[in-house]
C-alpha cells in the first residue's frame, strides 16, 4: 500500500521518454553517414552540454530531497497555495530570478512543489522569471544598453504575473489537468 502510494507520487512516463531519447540519439547516425565532421562536432557539443548540466542535476537532487524532508504541504499551501496572495507572487518571482540551471531541470522540483499545494500560476510565474538571468545581465547590458535591460527586466516581471493569472484561470478555474499532479 505504502509502495503503491509512493509510486503514485511519481510521474508515469511509460516508454515515451525512452523512445524520444533513442530517436534523438539515432539522429546522429544519418548525420555521421552524411558528414563525419559535423557529426563529431554535434557529438562534442552533446558531451559538453551533458557535462555542463551534471553538477546542476546534483543540486536539483539535493533540493528535491530537502523539499521532501522539510517542506510540509500545509506550509506550501500557506505561502504559495490558493490563498497566498501577494506573498506567493513575490516568492515565485524572486525564486525564479535567483534560480540557476536549465529550465527542464526544474520540472521535477516544480512537480514536487505543486503536489504539495503550490498554485499552477505561481509555478508558471516562477518559470517565466527564469527568463531573467542575473549572472548574464552585465553581458546583456554590454550588448543592448542599460536602459533596455532595465525596461525589459521590469516588463518581464510584470508580465510573469499576467501569465500566472492566465495559467491559474486555465488550469484551476476550468478544472484543468491537476489530476496528473495527484497521480
Amino acid at each position: 500500500m505504502k509502495k503503491e502510494k509512493q509510486a503514485n507520487n511519481q510521474p508515469k512516463p511509460g516508454r515515451g521518454p525512452w523512445i524520444f531519447m533513442f530517436i534523438s540519439l539515432f539522429l546522429f547516425f544519418p548525420l555521421y553517414l552524411a558528414d563525419k565532421e559535423k557529426a563529431a562536432l554535434a557529438m562534442g557539443k552533446f558531451v559538453h552540454l551533458a557535462m555542463e548540466i551534471l553538477p546542476m542535476l546534483l543540486v536539483v537532487f539535493v533540493l528535491m530531497a530537502l523539499i521532501n524532508i522539510f517542506l510540509k504541504t500545509s506550509t506550501m499551501v500557506k505561502y504559495m497555495g490558493k490563498g497566498s496572495g501577494i506573498k506567493g507572487w513575490f516568492i515565485a518571482i524572486v525564486a525564479g530570478i535567483l534560480s540557476v540551471g536549465a529550465l527542464y531541470l526544474w520540472y521535477p522540483v516544480l512537480r514536487n512543489l505543486m503536489q504539495k499545494g503550490v498554485k499552477p500560476g505561481l509555478a508558471a510565474a516562477f518559470l517565466y522569471n527564469r527568463g531573467i538571468k542575473l549572472p548574464w545581465l552585465p553581458l546583456m547590458v554590454l550588448y543592448f544598453g542599460l536602459k533596455y535591460v532595465i525596461v525589459l527586466t521590469a516588463v518581464t516581471v510584470v508580465v510573469s504575473i499576467l501569465q500566472g493569472v492566465i495559467i491559474d484561470f486555465l488550469i484551476t478555474e476550468e478544472g484543468g489537468d491537476e489530476s496528473i499532479l495527484q497521480q
Binding site: 534523438s24 539522429l27 531541470l105
Partner: peptide
C-alpha cells in the same frame, strides 16, 4: 528526456 533534449540541441 534530458538526454534526448541535449541530443536535439546539439544537432
Amino acid at each position: 528526456t534530458i538526454v534526448g533534449i541535449l541530443a536535439l540541441i546539439s544537432l
